[in-house]
């Protein structure tokens, strides 16, 4: 069981602040954040860094997906925290800061110091990854709970992602292991304190 993030029981400002923070960070570093990447980033934050925003992810053919993340992104957009444009050349969305992005970060700012280090690492490790690369890695982390034996895990991932070769899956698995993502995904929960 993960540690629940402290949250306003009436309005999940922390969730909105998290989304706004991702959008702000990617924009500030000149990187592109798409809808798929946002889903996978939040999944990795929950599963590999053990910060629970109460998002429930399900595995689809396109990797872990949570309808509440999609819904919250729409709400953030409605509040003016995000602008969402479709890039026809890339075939994906691009999320940019809206006029209220900093207001949303402020409203849920109590949580940001606690997760800042994790976000730094996540963005440094995978901020420039493609949606396809992120999807493979998040699927590996998702399935690591099924089987931690590396050969079995590669086989399990290939069952779901047959368009990746065994070598590609193994390389991604090794990278996640070296960066600590797989190990942390099975660690005990951490204790959190926030500014709230």
């Amino acid at each position: 069981m993960l540690d629940p993030m402290p949250s306003n029981p009436e309005i999940p400002w922390e969730r909105y602040a998290l989304i706004a923070e991702f959008i702000r960070r990617f924009d500030a570093q000149g990187m592109t954040l798409g809808k798929t990447a946002l889903q996978k980033m939040i999944f990795l934050l929950q599963r590999a860094f053990r910060f629970d925003f109460d998002y429930g992810f399900t595995l689809y053919t396109y990797g872990p997906f949570c309808v509440d993340v999609a819904r919250d992104l729409d709400i953030v957009r409605g509040f003016g925290g995000a602008e969402i444009a479709y890039d026809a050349n890339r075939g994906g969305y691009e999320l940019r800061p809206g006029p209220a992005v900093d207001e949303l970060r402020t409203r849920g700012s109590g949580i940001l110091p606690a997760i800042s280090g994790a976000l730094d690492q996540l963005v440094a490790d995978y901020g420039r990854a493609t949606a396809k690369e992120l999807e493979l890695r998040s699927t590996i982390v998702f399935l690591a709970r099924q089987d931690q034996n590396k050969e079995a895990l590669v086989k399990l991932v290939r069952q779901v992602k047959p368009h990746f070769s065994d070598a590609q899956i193994e390389a991604a698995r090794r990278e996640l292991e070296e960066r600590g993502y797989l190990g942390r995904a099975i660690e005990a929960p951490r204790t959190l304190t926030t500014g709230n």
Partner: peptide, 15 residues
Amino acid sequence: QNDGSLPLQLLFWRP
């Protein structure tokens, strides 16, 4: 329940 162990031939139909 989809715990992640479905092969693509079944996972495809889950939606």
